[in-house]
């Protein structure tokens, strides 16, 4: 039955379509997922690294250091979004168990020391000049690496806090029942795996940029080598760039699968959810979603990395850059389209 609603309300940021959150929140969610991925990879790498293993420095030190800087930028974006900025300290005067943002504010407090501890383990190898100027860094590194329990604690805590941070960035918006596009717990794992793929891409980029051509252990250093060594007792193999490329492909494939499940779940759910999914499938956000997120952010890097694995094309930075662009676009599109999805779009009743 046709229905027409006319309202006298026109509150800024609310009408005609909700646009309370601007660019700050998508950027914060993107960086949060990226840092979560860096923490998980750093944690895994630390657990399997030999003390003073040069290859470990990219994941265990450069990654966390970049993560610390990025997270600060993300926190700045979050702060810029607040409309009552002088009261931000109120976040830490209470804990609200039903509020994802309250959980997040405390998780973020744990992220900094965990990342810093991981970075300190191999800092002298990563930045020798800094270690020469501040010998205490070498002392700290030696102290940590000489204690296996401490190494395991740092590695495991980075993995666990990383998972919590990655999932939190999804739960932050999936916990808002008024926006049908976000009403799925799949957003937690989706943002986690998107964060892992962007983190792997960023580490790849750091690796390529930071090392001389002849020293590059290739992308292989990062995750699957470590996992393989950890689980099967195999030694490190510096010539297995293809394995880490496969790791990135695995993250991208899982992310693609989760995105498909996310859309299928919405389309087959209630009418409000189906209409929310239509925003991405055929609506105003369909073109950027399919082109930027699926095409440029997932499918193209998957194909490029597949061809790299087949030795048909050269290894380049292109897939890493595309993955990062896709991850950022995913957050922007989901946050903006989600705000437009609404219960009132459905005509209820006879």
């Amino acid at each position: 039955m046709p229905l027409e609603l006319t309202t006298t309300r026109h509150n800024p940021g609310i009408d005609p379509l909700l646009h309370a959150w601007g660019w700050e929140i998508p950027v914060y969610l993107f960086i949060g997922g990226l840092v979560a991925g860096l923490m998980i990879i750093a944690g895994v790498r630390l657990l399997v690294a030999k003390p003073r293993e040069r290859q470990a420095m990219v994941c265990c030190t450069l990654g966390p250091l970049v993560g610390l800087a990025l997270l600060s930028l993300g926190m700045l974006a979050l702060f810029m979004d607040l409309s009552h900025k002088l009261y931000v300290w109120r976040l830490y005067l209470s804990f609200e168990p039903t509020a994802p943002m309250s959980w997040g504010s405390y998780i973020l407090l744990l992220v900094y020391p965990a990342l810093l501890a991981n970075a300190l383990t191999h800092l002298p190898e990563a930045i020798p000049s800094l270690a020469k100027r501040f010998p205490v860094l070498l002392t700290i590194s030696d102290y940590i690496l000489a204690r296996q329990r401490m190494v395991i604690s740092i590695g495991v805590s980075n993995m666990l806090i990383g998972v919590a941070l990655g999932v939190y960035t999804g739960v932050l918006i999936s916990g808002l029942p008024a926006r049908p596009l976000w009403n799925t717990s799949l957003l937690g794992p989706l943002f986690l795996f998107s964060g892992l793929s962007t983190a792997a891409a960023l580490l790849h980029a750091i690796l390529v940029i930071s090392m001389k051509e002849e020293d590059r252990p290739a992308f292989a250093d990062i995750l699957l080598t470590s996992l393989a060594r950890w689980s099967q007792g195999r030694g490190p193999d510096t010539s297995i760039a293809p394995i880490l490329t496969r790791a990135d492909n695995s993250f991208l494939t899982i992310e693609l699968g989760l995105l498909m499940l996310f859309l299928i779940g919405l389309v087959t759910s209630t009418e409000v959810n189906a209409q929310a999914a239509a925003l991405l499938l055929t609506g105003a956000y369909a073109a950027p979603f399919w082109v930027l997120v699926i095409g440029i952010g997932i499918i193209t890097p998957l194909i490029l990395q597949f061809l790299e694995l087949q030795n048909r094309i050269r290894h380049t930075l292109a897939p890493a850059v595309l993955v990062l662009v896709g991850g950022l676009a995913l957050r922007f599109i989901l946050v903006f389209a989600g705000q437009e999805s609404h219960w009132l779009r459905v005509v209820a009743g006879p």
């Binding site: 309300r9 509150n11 309370a20 607040l82 009552h84 900025k85 943002m101 029942p177 008024a178």
Partner: peptide, 26 residues
């Protein structure tokens, strides 16, 4: 005095009944 203006409540309300007051709070 407790509101930080994060706007989560605005996004959570299915009635869009809240708004950001020019002074910053919801």
């Amino acid at each position: 005095e407790k509101c930080i203006g994060c706007k989560a409540c605005i996004a959570a309300c299915p009635y869009d009944a809240r708004f950001v007051h020019p002074e910053g709070y919801i």
